[in-house]
Amino acid sequence: MRALKSVGVRVGRRLVASVPALLGVVVFTFVLMRVLPGDPAVFFASGPNAGQAEIQMIREQMGLDRPVHEQLIRYFSEIGRGQLGRSMTTGQAVVADLRERLPASLELTLVALILALGAAIPLGILAALRPNSPLDHVVRFVCSMGVCVPTFVSGLLLIYVFYVVLGIAPDPTGRIDIFAASPPDITGFLLLDFAITGDWEGWRAAAGQIILPACTMALFVLAPLARMTRASMLAVLGSDFIRTARSIGLSRWKVIVVHGLRNALLPVITITGIVFSTMLGANVLVEKVFSWPGVGSYALDALLGSDYAPVQGFVLMMALAFVVVNLLIDVLYGIADPRVNVE
């Protein structure tokens, strides 16, 4: 109860502390978008020969003729109403667009993260148990490769091998086969929705679609996770309490997992939070390669089209995601390490 309360207090404090940062992010992107060259009115006018009058009309419609601070105030009042403006490209409200696409990105990122952790932690442990052995070097090599090869290259390679050559992967075109029926929209996460409705065939199809892009992303973040696990495992295995655990005759397995790994995972939790946030924003390339309908490609298209509202909305959403993820990591850390609550 006491621990729960202290977690609650910490969460509240962190949320309040993040408000100024979020405000700053909003103002910064808002101003930046307006400083960047390119006039959305010209872009969205009916055609290249649109007259000055038409462009002027669009400007007035979009409120671009007003001074920047007035536009900003209008934007804030819109945020206050829970709106983020309208996308000129899709013609929809930005909030609706994001709501539609965010689950795709989140699902991809989460699956990739689970794959990455599933591979990185065992690899890191193995490398730490036999430092400088051939196995350690193999792990190091795999990690270096993962980081060195850009995601669009590794993505294309995976497509080439598993789709073109072996033919075991489905077309790399989005979250679901175009001819397959999509599940009812419950959570937006296809894998979850299929599982909830009990449609296991659909689940397999969705899983088939997500596995290659997820692997591509997982490869990219394998290195920080595996290297961190190795380093912190090495440090922990050399510590006094591991010697104590051995001195009371615990089995090797118990010493490594119960006393070693649990302590070694503490820094890995922190890194995981950073990795997750980065993945969420940086998977534009993967989304492009696999035609994944996520927020990354949405924001990129908007940016190229000088479409202000979606870019601003995307940045704000990412900032929020950062706050939430960090908070989550903080809470997790507090649960995993009893020493944190004291401070």
Partner: peptide, 24 residues
């Protein structure tokens, strides 16, 4: 050796705070 440790020969270490697992 593991069968002996703790059961037949056990140890008490220096710096007891560090010798105990901090999160258990």
């Amino acid at each position: 050796l593991r069968a002996l440790r703790g059961a037949a020969i056990s140890m008490v270490f220096q710096n007891p705070r560090a010798a105990l697992n901090p999160i258990r």
